[in-house]
Simulated assay, not measured.
Amino acid sequence: MARGRGRLSGIEQLPPEADQIVADAAQALQDRERTQIDIYEEFFNALNKLKRDHRGELEFAVPSFSAFNRYSIRLSAMTRRLEETREIASAIAGRFDAQASDDLTLIASEAIKTLVYETLMDSGRSGASPKEAQQLASALYRATQAQGVSTNRRLKVEKEFAQAVDTVGKVAGLSKETMDEINRRLGIL
């Protein structure tokens, strides 16, 4: 019997109208210039303002501080893993003495491999479905093939990498804005 993903977090249950508020909070958390309590207070006030602005037409529960804290920890861990992946891939690219134009291909391929591996390792907790496992395996296969491609195929590899990051983000339950930020930080967007 396949396990489900489980209950959605309070942040995942927010309506699409709150996506920018969540993205702003995620960015503030990643910037690490303010305390989490200050960021939560701003997040809390912005969500309550959103509710007031919609005059009862948009009903949702504002996530608790503990839910915000869990989101913050998950976001921090994901960001840290992606940054480590980028550093490792850069070191590998240097070790293989790849030409400058092909560095992105090698880095993207290694990052996809790491993301797929980490997602599969976490699947016991997140309950990845067989379809998601197939998508991850497909991304891994494409990544290994991409290592041998020439520079003129770099754009295709970037797209595949963005799709793999998107797949991993969906499995992890991250918002589109968070995934866009991750792609931006990895230099894909």
Rank of each mutant, 00 (worst) to 15 (best):
L104A: 14
Q36L: 07
E42I: 04
G10W: 01
H54D: 08
A146D: 05
T105A: 12
E87A: 10
R5Q: 12
L189S: 15
M78T: 12
F44D: 07
L115Y: 02
V171T: 12
K176P: 02
Y141R: 14
L155G: 15
L58T: 10
P16M: 04
E84I: 10
R32F: 10
D122G: 02
S109L: 05
L14G: 00
I39S: 00
I21S: 07
L50I: 14
N152V: 11
K176Y: 05
S9M: 00
R70T: 15
P16D: 07
F44G: 04
D38G: 05
G187E: 04
E17L: 09
G6V: 00
N48V: 08
E83K: 15
K170D: 14
E17S: 10
M179R: 08
G94T: 12
A172Q: 15
E17W: 02
G56L: 09
L174W: 00
V149Q: 14
L140I: 07
T79Y: 05
T79K: 09
S64H: 03
R154C: 06
Q13N: 15
H54F: 13
D31Q: 14
L58I: 12
L75W: 03
A139P: 03
T144Q: 13
L174M: 07
Y71M: 02
L14N: 01
M121I: 09
A2S: 14
K113N: 15
R3Y: 08
K159N: 10
Q163C: 11
L58R: 06
S76A: 10
V165A: 08
G127W: 00
R81Y: 10
S150N: 09
L75Q: 04
Q99E: 13
D97A: 11
A67E: 11
L115G: 09
R95Y: 07
T151V: 15
S150W: 06
R153C: 10
T144W: 04
R154M: 11
Q147R: 09
L75F: 04
Q147L: 14
A137P: 04
E110F: 08
S72N: 00
I188R: 06
Q145R: 13
F65E: 03
G148A: 07
N48S: 05
R184T: 13
G187W: 00
T35P: 00
K131C: 02
T79I: 03
R74I: 02
I37E: 15
I88C: 06
Q36I: 01
A162C: 03
A93S: 11
L14E: 01
T144Y: 14
L8G: 04
Q13S: 11
R3F: 10
R70E: 08
A26W: 00
V149F: 14
R55Y: 14
M179I: 14
D31W: 11
T105S: 11
L8M: 08
A91G: 11
A139I: 08
M179A: 06
R142F: 02
T178K: 00
D24G: 06
I107Y: 01
L104C: 09
L29F: 05
F96R: 10
E17M: 07
E12T: 07
A98E: 11
I39K: 01
M121T: 07
G173R: 01
T119K: 04
A172D: 05
L29H: 08
R7G: 13
